[in-house]
Amino acid sequence: MKTTQLFKIGAAALAFAASSASLATVLVVRAQGPSAKVYPPGKALPESAKIQLQPGDSVMLLNTNGARTLRGPGTFAVAATGGGLAEAANRRARFSAMRSGEVPLNPSPWNVDITQSGKLCVANPSKLTLWRPQKEDGIKLTIRGGSGEQTIDWPAGTDTIAWPASLPVTTGAEYQLSQPESGDTARVTFVTLNSPPGDTIGTAQSLIANGCENQLDVLVDGAPSAD
């Protein structure tokens, strides 16, 4: 093969790589202020994009490196530059550490937090895990909905336990999670995902599209810190 042909092939490969990099996805996960309708949660942006924010605007962006919050007014590059993303991630980590002194954070967006009501997206209904923020004492948890009712004895010292197999999850049905001893009750409605996402961006998109806001909070709080 001639040298000129090799050069052209190499140049084409570099151009393709550069194009692919510029199309890497950044996702809007939170938006407040006048520009929220322009940058709604779920909007995907290439890393090469710039966004214009007005006074009072606040937009949180998520990519595979972590979360970054931009506040207007101003024009901002979507891609993190310098230590911006790392700084935002570190602030979030410090905030999470402060919170963890009072209430631990749910370690997985797929866990069923028994203290939170709302829609809950399910990737694998047959392998659901219940989670509670306080594990010091043993409790009884009564689940009502779908095909019946089940009471679980949750031992002290454990923060997770399997969803009872005798009470299959039904998409669209509401389930009531009650703790008779404390009187605490949460109500969740399950949404089964036909094609469970395999990455952070895909997961966030699915949670936003299906209105699973509590899980989105867990995903964003647990996003990896940027270098």
Rank of each mutant, 00 (worst) to 15 (best):
A15G: 07
M60D: 04
W110D: 12
L128I: 01
E181Y: 10
G72L: 03
V112S: 08
T200H: 01
G66I: 02
A186V: 09
L216M: 07
V78M: 06
A209T: 04
G72E: 01
A80V: 10
C212V: 03
E213W: 00
F95D: 13
L120Q: 08
A123Y: 10
S19P: 03
A165T: 08
S58C: 03
T4W: 11
L193I: 14
W163D: 02
I114W: 01
V220D: 10
A204T: 03
E87T: 14
L130T: 00
Q205M: 11
P34H: 07
V188S: 03
S58I: 07
S19L: 15
A12I: 14
S225N: 11
V220N: 04
G72S: 06
A165S: 13
K37W: 09
E174N: 13
G56V: 02
P180R: 12
V78C: 08
K8M: 09
Q205K: 15
A67P: 00
P180A: 11
L23N: 08
P107F: 08
T142F: 01
P34K: 11
P196V: 03
N65K: 15
W131I: 05
Q116S: 07
P197L: 08
P197E: 07
P55D: 14
L23H: 14
V122G: 03
A13Q: 11
T151S: 12
S100R: 09
P125I: 08
E87D: 08
E136T: 11
N63Q: 05
E181G: 07
S108A: 15
D113Q: 05
P155K: 15
N194R: 14
E174L: 07
A156K: 14
L120S: 03
R187E: 08
L141Q: 01
D159I: 01
N194W: 05
A15S: 12
A165F: 09
N63T: 06
V169C: 00
T158S: 13
L128Q: 04
K127S: 12
V38D: 14
A223W: 01
T115F: 06
S206F: 00
A49Y: 09
N124C: 07
G222N: 15
G101K: 11
P41A: 04
D159M: 08
K2H: 12
W131L: 06
D199A: 10
T158K: 08
I152S: 02
A162K: 13
L167G: 10
A49C: 05
A31P: 02
D137C: 00
G83C: 08
D57G: 05
M1L: 10
S48W: 03
R68C: 00
L177F: 04
D184R: 09
I152K: 04
E181A: 15
S19Y: 12
G172T: 12
L61P: 01
K140N: 15
D137Y: 11
F16G: 09
A86T: 13
L62N: 02
D184N: 13
L62D: 01
I208S: 02
W110N: 08
T160S: 09
T115K: 04
N194P: 05
V188I: 15
L167V: 08
S100W: 06
E136C: 02
Y175I: 00
A93P: 03
L128H: 01
E213M: 09
T200E: 08
P180C: 12
W154D: 05
A97C: 09
S108E: 10
T115Q: 07
V29H: 06
S100V: 07
T158H: 09
R92E: 13
A21L: 14
L61D: 02
L207G: 03
A86K: 14
V218T: 13
A173S: 13
A93H: 04
T25Y: 02
